[in-house]
Design a protein around this nucleic acid. Structure first.
Lengths: 255, 255
DNA sequence: GCTTGACCTTGACGCAGCGTCAACCCTGCA
DNA sequence: TGCAGGGTTGACGCTGCGTCAAGGTCAAGC
């Protein structure tokens, strides 16, 4: 007769594993000796080795029993099923590897490549890092909300950068952030004028209606607005724009 | 301001996941409104999306924090590390697939191929299934105890099958199991004679000493003996062998 | 006969990442 | 005012054991 330790060592498993198999009903609890020790015979070793063999092949414990007393047909069906599950897990992990590799190579966490490219252009024209980082956050939101449209949005934004006034606008922001208060008193109204000029053009060419189609979720627009309003400059600008008849920020509308 | 449901839906995760992230400290618990509801802002959405992005790439939650505020170098080291872990898991699963395939194709659970081949030969010479199944169990034990030597053991056993007396011995067992009591009274002493004859030869050619080298674990020998003693025929045979000066079963010795 | 160390016992938490009740409160709309 | 559809905390479930904790038991050496 064997103790649990001898059983476990003959079968090449841990004592804890044996007790676990008792607990889940894979092996019946054996007789106890006078002092309460479990006593095993050779058949228990054989059964335990069979269990171990299946477990080491990736068979979930919950299905080991069914495989142990399966006929050839049932057995091969079950192994085929388990193999499918193993393949699925492997595919999942490979997908993880793909994503990890993308993150490692990619510019910045959680933004699609198109956004990263756009942000690089914005940086190139001299926008401050503070703004770039704020834009990145905003576009992360947009990309999560409209994953299919983010590429089109970025095309639009890149085209807008061709307008020298847009470039001037970003550069003004840069000057504002590094400059002193006094200078900013000129700057902000100038920027408002610039924006109004562009808004009028956009309205004339029908671009404002296109905006309506894209940004149909007003709660989401409010959310993006709320991010921008973290900066006093935006608040100030929106005030001036409102005086000139334009409201909104993420989504621009005539008052 | 957002509720937890809105936050979760913007970020594309479940409410339960958000609460879990609070619990493990990945996201700080936000302010509550008058009625105890959690209230979130846009930054929370951004943070949550970043977390989701990492989690979906297979980064363990415990390391997400560290990756979120890592510089480029730390980040790439960490992702390399995680990729190694993913590869290791994939290898493990592939090993499981290999084993499952072996089991599916193999003759019988948990026996090495050499044993399965030997058992097939035993079956071919007309041994009864009961004995084959008992032999299989015994060899499962031996293979687990001496994995490196099992192939050599099988070579020995296959060679033994070339002796016509061994074949006759197995066939006698077959007759015994199917025959009636009266006939067995002759059979068992005959079998004992046959065994003694072979033992004497083995002793003369020095094969018994080789046995000593292989079976050095006396507790294990006892274990195997105990399996055989499940059958009254073995008990009877051992009695007769003992009278003729031979003791043991798994390991044969002169009295 | 006593100590020592190795082995046995049960019980319970821990791990990863949430899913899924349960039982109850809050809010907005008809 | 009632109801549907949010929200809240709390706790168990899943997988396969590892790892304490707090003992009782056994064999061996003194």
């Amino acid at each position: 007769m064997l103790t649990i330790g001898q059983l476990a060592s003959y079968a090449g498993v841990t004592i804890r594993a044996v007790r676990h198999y008792h607990q889940v009903g894979l092996m019946p609890e054996p007789e106890r000796d006078a002092s309460g020790y479990r006593t095993y015979d050779a058949d228990a070793v054989v059964r335990l080795i069979r269990i171990r063999t299946l477990a080491e092949a990736g068979v979930p414990l919950a299905r080991v029993q069914e495989l142990l007393d399966a006929d050839a047909k049932t057995f091969s069906e079950a192994t085929a099923q388990i193999d499918r599950e193993l393949r699925a897990k492997i595919r999942e992990l490979q997908e993880h590897r793909r994503r990890i590799a993308q993150l490692a190579s990619g510019d910045s966490l959680a933004v699609p490549e198109a956004v990263a490219d756009y942000l690089e252009m914005v940086r190139a024209i001299g926008a401050p890092e503070l703004l770039i980082s704020a834009e990145r956050d905003a576009w992360i939101l947009v990309a999560a909300r409209y994953p299919d449209q983010i590429a089109a949005f970025m095309e639009d934004k890149v085209r807008q950068l061709e307008d020298p006034r847009v470039v001037r606008f970003y550069q003004s922001i840069s000057r504002m952030l590094s400059g002193d208060e006094k200078e900013n008193e000129h700057l902000v109204p100038e920027m408002a004028d610039l924006l109004v000029e562009m808004f009028e053009e956009a309205a004339a060419s029908g671009q404002l209606e296109q905006q309506d189609l894209n940004m149909d979720d007003s709660a989401f627009v409010q959310l993006l607005d709320s991010m921008a309003e973290g900066h006093p400059m935006v608040v100030q600008l929106r005030q001036l724009l409102a005086e000139r008849g334009w409201i909104g920020w993420t989504k621009i509308e005539r008052a």
